[in-house]
Amino acid sequence: MSGRRAELRSFLRGCDVPVRVLDRDPTGASWLPEHLRPWALEDPGAQAEIRRFVEAERCLSELARPMEEAMFVTDVMARVEREGREDVRPCLRATVLFAAHLAAVVLGVYALGWAFPDAGRYVETAQTSIEDAAAWAAAAWFDVADGLVLAAAGLVAVLGAVALRYARRGRMPHTSGA
């Protein structure tokens, strides 16, 4: 590639000429740098490159043409009607989810105790632990059965964290319009 061609390309890469000017003068007679102009106006390769640049700029400016479709508005309004305002705020939803998960785990522990009486020793310990959180915290590290409860508590914590994360994602940012 010749030095002038490289220079033309470098100029076109950073060129900021309004489309209306390019429309009026697609050859570059008025907007090319003076030292390149005589060569660029004569050279067919340079002109081809300039034409393609101008065409690309025109296309880019036409990308702004809005897409109109009546059905889109209908679809949006149908969704607004269907899903409308959020009944619960994200924070409240996260709290409800967390409480529901917690309740599910507690019920699960009791249900397991009922279904597997042989494991009564462990379940009994777990039940005691749930009823007496302080005692459980002290004993959990020393008892295998309490280890099960610890795992359950961990599960609840993880589910709670997931619920909070989803709630944060679902929250509408930038609502202040500032």
């Binding site: 889109f72 679809d75 949006v76 969704r79 607004v80 409308g84 305002r85 959020e86 509408m172 202040s176």
Partner: peptide, 16 residues
């Protein structure tokens, strides 16, 4: 785009 307008509708009361 549908999600955008639904979110906008929901957030509209908080748009200052």
């Amino acid at each position: 785009a549908q999600d955008v307008f639904l979110r906008a509708y929901r957030a509209l009361p908080r748009f200052e």
